[in-house]
Design a protein around this nucleic acid. Structure first.
Lengths: 237, 237
DNA sequence: CAGTTGACGGAATTTGAAAAATCGTCATAT
DNA sequence: ATATGACGATTTTTCAAATTCCGTCAACTG
């Protein structure tokens, strides 16, 4: 039999263990809230010693940041998947719809973006700054891409559209906090309609160009995913 | 000389004193935050005894609620004034612009709507329920009025527009919390443009009808102001 | 006597120090 | 080489004493 000593020299098993830890941490986080989940709980839940958890993340805060980071990654991946499957998804209003649902259907992200302090703990302000910046740049690149192809309204600066879009999007996200559990798809449609009429041009676009834009957007998201993964130490998908 | 004994049997002087108390309370609230302002501070600031403050409001919470109520009233009055001066202001996007500025230019309302707990104190959740309901009804009536005159987009229920409009409006409001101090007018324009394209019809309307709608809206707001004033015990304007 | 006041009792909040819990390390174990 | 849990240090919680503050009301004023 393989000696247990070198079991985890294998990066594969190491990643699997990291994933298990994150699973446990995410579960406890949702059920008890940030403040009440201890490193001992997480270690016990994962069936390993506490020291082993610290072989993966240097601090408690980094562990929980990684939980959120993985959730963000997963949402972005869903977005990318949607884009690959249907090039139409690169149109801003479809994009908004898919992204909205990707967020509100993930309880941790809902808690994060509604700034639920019970779920968030001290992860509120400081962290993710690097990532947030990157995502901001990505959003601008994406909008610039749409603008280049005449997919955005004329007579508005890209920055203006960016500001207004973000305000609108986050408005619908926050409204979701007070809204009933059901009817999410309908509210996503409402957001999509609002975004389409407010920010998109009425010009139609050839299927070929649409595919190009979608592909470029996939690349944009891919780069972002790579950067995020590199930073947060979650090697593979 | 008039005996000072019956000085304040006069409702006029009574109202003036109430206003002075509210002025002091508002000032202290902005400078020190809800938690740190005591009834003794307010009384001292107004140059009267604490007992006298309690002749106007039964509890501390009611006093500070009245501070906010007066601010809301003032914003609504500004809105009504704008409508009287320019009937165009009844169009949803102008309405949004004026209302947005009326709120963000009032520090107390900014603090209230951005849910700044420093400013809000325990006035967060519970109170204003009656008023909030009334304002909700008013908003629906206003939108129904616009819909009747073909001033809203076709193909959407009034409730849908109401939901989407509120989400958008509050999104811009919240974005204002993170935005720099300057450029408020520009951001108000951005909101107006967004609302116009998303929720208004392109149909033009006769000046006469516009005046009618504006007048009806003025009435709507007037009723609301009366109801609010009656409830919060602030008799005159 | 209508109108006002500030001292007062009780409730709520703050303070501070001791007790408990948790973090992150590291010597030991495999 | 890898994993662990006992351990010191730090943070959080607890709890009671001390303080602050709310709301009342007997006394006061003109």
């Amino acid at each position: 039999m393989s000696t247990s000593a070198d079991r985890l020299r294998d990066p594969r098993q190491r990643a699997e263990r990291a994933a298990r830890i994150l699973d446990v941490a995410a579960d406890l986080l949702l059920r008890h809230g940030y403040r009440r989940v201890t490193m001992d709980d997480v270690a016990a839940g994962a069936g390993i010693g506490k020291g082993t958890v610290y072989l993966h993340w240097k601090t408690r805060e980094q562990l929980f940041s990684a939980v959120f980071a993985r959730e963000v990654l997963s949402a972005m991946d869903e977005l990318r998947q949607a884009l690959r499957q249907d090039p139409q998804a690169c149109l801003l209003h479809h994009f908004a719809r898919v992204y909205f649902l990707a967020i509100v259907n993930r309880p941790l992200l809902r808690g994060f973006l509604l700034e639920d302090p019970e779920v968030l703990g001290k992860l509120a302000g400081s962290p993710g700054t690097a990532r947030d910046d990157r995502h901001g740049v990505m959003a601008r690149d994406y909008l610039a891409l749409l603008a280049e192809h005449g997919l955005l309204r004329d007579g508005m600066e890209v920055d203006e559209i960016g500001y207004a879009f973000q305000a609108t999007f986050e408005g619908f996200l926050r409204a979701e906090g007070a809204a009933p559990a059901g009817g999410r798809e309908e509210r996503a449609d409402l957001l999509a309609g609002t975004v389409r009429r407010a920010f998109e041009s009425e010009a139609t676009i050839s299927d070929a160009t649409l595919r190009d834009v979608a592909a470029a957007t996939v690349t944009l998201i891919g780069d972002l995913l790579d950067a995020d993964r590199t930073e947060s130490g979650l090697p593979e998908a």
